[in-house]
Design a protein around this nucleic acid. Structure first.
Length: 512
RNA sequence: GGCUCGUUGGUCAAUCGGCUAAGACGCCUCCCUUUCACGGAGGAAUGACGGGUUCGAUUCCCGUACGGGCUACCA
């Protein structure tokens, strides 16, 4: 009997949730669903200085929008809570002190200034950024140079201290990454990371190990930026005696911006396309960053494009539902190299999803777009749905529906007269006058009938219908776009169609 | 600088030693459509470099180059 699969996503509530984060959630989610396991959301809020109010709710909102709701979280607690690390603060202490007791960690009393001095002192051209490691720790104020009792006295007196891991001098630390295979590090190259901070909070390194253990995580997926600290975590799992429970690791390739560097939250606005799932306004800096949702992406498309950025099943199929992804996903087929994000391709995914979505599916989103732009369509949902079907293949992003739909409900604000006035003549004026008379008498207002009369009158006047359809379109739509002109006329209705013809005829003037 | 991961068209990528190197996005041409799109047909464009291993390397190994990540009492 193998252990039930449990995976987790562990964001820190410090700002917007970006593409890489959502993709990590997605891969976790797919893996959990595929294996009938649990997907846990843990809030890593151990850095009180970076805490941003609202960020946690925002993360939940993003996940809800994406349809990737965790099985266990602060909102839906399971048996291994609390799910916020700040609320687990005390739990980490015993383990930190246990490590000190065992000699695998030590107390350090160095002030920030002293650390700075150390870095200055050991800085050379070859080593521009010295770390707290097996060499430098000998020169620092820590419990390695004193009896443990003495150190504890200092602590009892209230001396600020941290707990640092004591990395071994000469050991090779290796593990198997589900994506990269065998990865190895030499312990002498790894610094003595802080485990417990002076404020009593654990650092990520301690917290991630303790929590993954306590929460019985079986597979730990995270971004590649964590790879270099993996040996610290491996060491901790080992020294805490939990090796048998250690999750399988997978370090996900990074998503890069067009500049080839890791997407950064900090520069959410510099790319010209969103990088956050949803709109995010930093309450401290009062800085606004646009999200994919508000840009007009369907969550189905967003999740789809993210899944295929760094993973594919080899079939060549690119458009997939979440269910399809669940059954086809495999961590072994995730790329090891980072991928540049291409917004053009992202738009293509959305376009495909809009084309394939039913009008019913699109209806609420389209209504929201119209309402946002101040358009209150005087149409039933059925009418609106049939118009959506008419125009959806022309819409890449949700807001495109406004341009494609507006003229169905109101005469176009601008009419592209230039496109018709050049070839305008008296004959055409007469044609449209006759068309109006004919349309006024039509017993049924159906696009096929409209087209039939149109062509009949054109033939009677020895005019080619083709030369007249563009002007007709511009009268109704205002420009050169939109679906078939007789379909448009049918939806606009008799009165408005005739009204718009008259209107443009008037603008063209009698001079012609 | 050190450590570490990576490197197939502009971008996403298939290939698990047999390649005349898929497919998709984007771009270009044509067809359909006297609008815009959709759809269809076609085109330009790729294995970083140098060594090995092998009958045979894009695929395996080693160097080099280049790129990313990390190098905080941040995650």
């Amino acid at each position: 009997m193998t252990k039930p699969v449990r995976v987790r996503f562990a964001p820190s509530p410090t700002g917007g949730l970006h593409l890489g984060g959502v993709r990590t959630v997605l891969y976790n989610y797919l893996f959990a669903r595929q294996h009938g396991g649990q997907f846990i959301l843990r809030i890593e809020d151990t850095d009180q200085t970076r805490f941003v109010p609202g960020a946690e709710d925002y993360i939940f909102n993003c996940l809800a929008w994406c349809g990737l709701v965790p099985d266990e979280s602060v909102q839906r607690p399971g048996a291994v809570g609390p799910y916020r690390q700040s609320e687990r603060k005390e739990m980490y202490h015993q383990y930190a002190h246990r490590l000190v007791e065992q000699g695998d960690a030590y107390y350090a009393f160095d002030t920030p200034a002293e650390l700075e001095q150390m870095r200055e002192r050991f800085k050379t051209a070859e080593n521009p950024s010295p770390t707290y490691n097996q060499h430098t720790r000998q020169h620092m104020r820590n419990s390695l140079h004193m009896e443990l009792e003495a150190a504890r006295e200092l602590i009892a007196e209230g001396t600020p201290y941290v707990v640092r891991i004591k990395m071994p001098d000469d050991e090779t630390i290796r593990f198997t990454d589900m994506i990269r295979g065998e990865v190895s590090f030499h312990s002498s190259q790894v610094d003595d990371k802080v485990l417990l901070k002076a404020d009593g909070m654990p650092t990520y390194h301690l917290a991630v190990v303790v929590d993954d253990y306590l929460m019985q995580i079986t597979h730990a997926f995270r971004g590649e930026e964590w790879l270099s600290s993996a040996p610290v975590h491996l060491r901790l799992w080992q020294q805490l005696g939990w090796t048998d429970h250690m999750p399988q690791w997978a370090h996900l390739p990074l998503i890069m911006g067009p500049d080839g560097a890791k997407l950064s939250k900090r520069h959410g606005n510099k790319y010209g396309f969103p990088i956050f799932a949803m709109n995010w306004t930093d309450p401290v800096k009062n800085e606004f960053t646009e999200g994919f949702r508000e840009r007009g992406f369907l969550p189905e498309a967003f999740v789809n494009l993210l899944a295929l950025l760094g993973w594919n099943d080899g079939s060549g199929q690119e458009i997939m539902t979440l269910d399809e992804m669940v059954s086809r996903f495999s961590m072994e087929r995730v790329h090891s190299a980072g991928a540049q994000f291409d917004f053009e391709k992202a738009k293509w995914y959305n376009h495909e999803w809009i084309k394939r979505s039913s009008a019913q599916r699109l209806l609420p989103d389209v209504k929201a777009v119209l309402q946002q732009r101040g358009l209150q369509p005087t149409a039933t949902d059925e009418q609106l749905a049939s118009i959506i079907d008419l125009v959806k293949e022309r819409c890449t992003l949700l807001p495109d529906f406004y341009e494609q739909l507006a003229y169905f409900f109101a005469a176009p604000a601008r009419i592209d007269l230039d496109s018709i006035s050049g070839k305008w003549n008296e004959q055409k004026t007469l044609f449209f006058a006759e068309l109006i008379r004919s349309y006024e008498l039509l017993p049924y207002w159906q696009s096929t009938d409209l087209e039939h009369s149109f062509k009949e009158i054109a033939a009677a006047n020895h005019l080619k219908p083709g030369e007249l359809m563009l002007p007709f379109r511009i009268m109704l739509v205002g420009g050169k776009f939109g679906p078939g002109v007789f379909d448009i006329a049918q939806h606009i209705g008799q009165a408005d169609t005739i009204g718009r013809i008259r209107l443009t005829l008037g603008l063209l003037g009698p001079a012609h």
